[in-house]
Amino acid sequence: MFNGLTLGALLVLVAMGLTIIFGALGVVNFAHGALYALGAYAGLVAYEYTGSFAAAMAAGAAFLLAVGIVIERGLIRLYYERPAEDQILATFGVAIVLVEGLRAIFGGLARNIPAPSWAAGIVNLRVTLYPTYRIDVLAIVGVSLVALYFILYRTRLGLIVRAGIEDQLMVNILGINVTRTFLTVFGLGAMAAGFAGVINAPIVTVSPDMGADVLVQSFVVIVIGGVGSFWGAVVGGLIAGEILSLVAMIEPAYSQVALFATMALVLILRPQGLFGVEGRQ
């Protein structure tokens, strides 16, 4: 139950970046899992230099913000007008380059960032004993989501992003340079993925392929929750996390199956996703 919450919280963070990028830019970002892995490695390097987990978190987020901006300017922006297949191929290509680059530099062996000292140990939750770090993850993700919520719902940028998710052309007609907003959106999305990579690193192991499963699960999250929806990503992520870990307790082999079955069910009953809006353009 609590494992599901932690896993779900991380999925929320990764899926949030994915859904905002897809919603606003219309780009299915297959490099998102690789960005997540890159974030974890950036955190790893920073941790090995400084020994500070906080520095690792900051490095993962900052480095990925920069990487996101470079990728958007250098590549993705050339693909906005192209068909979805081209975008998928391009972002998939980025993913391969990043993952193999990580393998070339760090080797394929799994590495680890230990949980920070302030979060070591175990908490007695009365019903169960639980690693402190996992509780902290919930708090960290919670704070990040509040920050993201604030950006999306209380700032100019957020207003433009929310409007752009629905109708890019109209936002453009209203005098707003949408492509410049895209840059920020892509950077923020990449940053969320990188940040999630760092905070998940003490729970899982850091390896170049660590993003693959997360990417697929995040896609499922946004399909369940509804593309481009903040609350959709939150609720979808928590549902997915619970399904994955509860089913895994009974029969691990079926946890992914159960996740996809849930997605299929949502698609049948509510094709636009739980929080999606029908007929978005």
Partner: peptide, 23 residues
């Protein structure tokens, strides 16, 4: 535009604020 293209997820006020941002 003919289809009006009101941003459905934004409130009336947000639609108006959005329009004024770059002016």
């Amino acid at each position: 535009p003919e289809e009006r293209r009101i941003i459905g997820g934004l409130t009336v006020e947000e639609n108006l604020v959005l329009a004024g941002l770059s002016e």
